[in-house]
Nucleic acid binder design. Sequence first.
RNA 1: GCCGGUGUGGUGAAAUGGCAGACACGACAGACUCAAAAUCUGUUAUACGCAAGUAUGUGGGGGUUCAAGUCCCUCCACCGGCACCA
Length: 863
Amino acid sequence: MFVAGGDAERFPFHSEVGVVNWEVSTMQVRKQFPFAVFEPTWQQHWIENSTFRAANPGEPGSEKPKYYALDMFPYPSGAGLHVGHPEGWIATDITSRCRRMRGFNVLHPMGWDAFGLPAEQYAVQTGTHPRDTTEKNIATFRRQIQALGFSYDWSREINTTDPAYYKWTQWIFIQLYKKGLAYVSHAPVWYCPALGTVLANEEVLPTLEGPRSERGNHPVERRPLRQWMLKITAYAERLLADLDQLDWPESLKEMQRNWIGRSEGAEVQFKVASSEVAADGSSAGIADTITVFTTRPDTLFGATYMVLSPEHPFVEKITTSEQRDAVQKYKAEVANKSDLERTDLAKSKSGVFTGAYAINPVNSEKIPIWIADYVLMGYGTGAIMAVPAHDERDHEFAIKYNLPIIEVVESLHSAAGLREADSAPFTGEGHAINSGFLDGLPTAEAKAKMIDWLEEKKLGTRRIQYKLRDWLFSRQRYWGEPFPVIWNGDQHDVISENDLPLTLPELTDYQPSPEGNAPLAKAKDWLKLPDGRIRETNTMPQWAGSCWYYLRYCDPKNEHALIDPAVEKYWMGEKGVDLYIGGAEHAVLHLLYARFWHKVLFDIGVVSTSEPFHKLVNQGMILGEDNRKMSKSWGNVINPDDVVTEYGADSLRLFEMFLGPLEQMKPWSTTGIEGVYRFLGRIWRLVMEENQEGEWLFAPAKVTDAAPSLELLRGLHAGIRKVTEDIEKLQFNTAISALMVLVNDLTKEPVRPRAAIETLLLLLAPFAPHMAEELWHQLGHDKTLAYEPWPQADPKYLVQSESEIVFQVNGKVRGHVTVAAGSSKEVIEAAARALPAFAEWTAGKTIRKVIVVPDKLINFVVG
RNA sequence: GCCGGUGUGGUGAAAUGGCAGACACGACAGACUCAAAAUCUGUUAUACGCAAGUAUGUGGGGGUUCAAGUCCCUCCACCGGCACCA
């Protein structure tokens, strides 16, 4: 899922050898601490000792409370990482390391979302099997990620292209199929000739050049093709309602709400009066019924015409002979229009009269039926009742074609009659006028009463409508999960769960056919079963594997089930994933799809919660130093490997977190990273010194076993509290600044108390784990600090014995006065009145009011 | 157009309605050095002032409050999302 946008393949990270020779040699002289030695050493130590292995139920360690910190797993592209990728991963790693020290059993895994188009396109060009490309890229990504010192449990690494993994992706599809949530459709779908595949609505973006593929920005077009659909619309209500219980950014929840697009309203049935009969004045001769959806049933008295989508099946049936040519011509025009033209808001409305009339059920008025492309076949019933007085689109259309406008809602504020006929329509709520039995009712009541009336007369019904469409789930590609489906003529069925996984056949030619046949159709032996039936040749979209990967981490090796129920209860119980951090670009795709699958799995008893991700945070994008999005074309991409070589992984981790609030977009800064690098150097030199040969050695003379001073202890415990609270709130930038304050205090001491240094290292460990481990080791500890108890702030060092009170006159600071902490208002006022500044600023004035905030300030209001 | 977010020094940014600018970057000055780098120390919102100090200052305007970056109204700019969804 998580492709670094559009970047072309390139050879992974060879720093330009030779070009920067001079720089490199001087840089090596300048290294403030030997990170290049101890960082790889500790990374190896953690892996060899399985330091971060999380305990599953039944294993020692599982008696602890669990914490599940999840990263969005990457698509391993050929371009390798850039510094934006690890931002969220660093954040969850800090949280994970801190939680471990606080006694939690932490699940913090990483894996690969490795199906996808780039490897397949590379295969089309070079014939290299996507599996080989994928393996190579994964090796690169793994090496880069491990160089950053993340505390992943690598025994749980997963890969969506592994048959042992996608066996269960296929298994979930079978469950969807059996529940009737997977079906075949022949409706027109978005097809991308350049990519040789169909795309989901969500993967198509409207652009100035017309609709384009989200990936690669290629033109796309509508084609009627046989496709697999998933009935996500069946879950629309639950997907919407359950958002309320999630601790997600409000903006993201709002995006999902808008995407689901729930509207309450009514369906109303209009009888069609044939125009032939109408021509001779008779109102008999009912031909048919057209159903419309409206959110404003209260305006039914104002419906002066009706509009069908040009694709509406009734159009042929109702069009009169006189209008047939015009209607045919208009339909042809619309069909030839690009979707850009059709959805361009700037263009004026167009449409054609069908010659037919409908009867407004509420007043038996005959109203003309038009077709117009501003009514979409894909929403509601593909037909509307037009109320030009109270809808902007209907109003514009009515003005253009000179259709009647009847006002039926009066604004509560403006008097009736002031509105000119061609001014903007009133679309708000008010009370009903010109509406018979609704007159005088406020909009909400009028809606309810009209619906009751329609239901009673069997002319309509209450209806909830969603914008959400079903999920187009098939792709004409090779490098994806094959569908576990077999066709017998027009009949389809799923294969037995016992025959999973259905693996991909080997191919030599990965090119899709121009007419939209999938590459798998070329695997003749695979395609045809002995009994003559054939396999489905489509594959699943890349979203499939990422829909449920967080479950597989819990039980990655289980051959008998997607996840063991006891394991599921332990890791996913109550709140599911405790913390999920990733980019906002997945707001409606991955996060909606995954929620949908999770609810299906909940319904069939595989998982025990209805929502997968309890708390979700979007990290902000890291921009280039020029404040532009990092991209090869701007030449502003920063490669983490270069940063690690120059400053070390700890510096990179610390800097990305120090840059600013996690959620905010922020530019990279090369000088900024030197700041945190120097900070780490200062910590290093608190206990280490360099000898004549340039070797760093532990300096016992710098460390004392004597107790820290009271002042130092106060600073230390204030620091403990601040760092602990800030990590909990994911405010890593201020946590780091608290660490800096602490280090500045310690630097000033000629000899540092060991206890204070050790506390500092424990607080530092989540942020800069390599240095913390190394110095912890230098101080004589022989075990990793990853499970040392997290320092506790002692309240007795947090209370101050004295408070400095701000002295204000009329809200302006005029001095300070120190009193004993907890002093009464009277004591503070007396102390303030004793200040020389008091006489100076209140001389000749009357004191009208005195405001005292204990331990904070005193304000004299004078005049 | 609608929805959401952001706006604070030269820069990245701090700030339960209670001393705006913590912590860093950069800049300037000093120490160390033959010299430089690194390191250490100090200064650094703006204006006036030798200084003590005074005034001004959190996108613009208005309001609530003893007190507003913070709360309310309104406008502007930028970023993200949606966009003929009836």
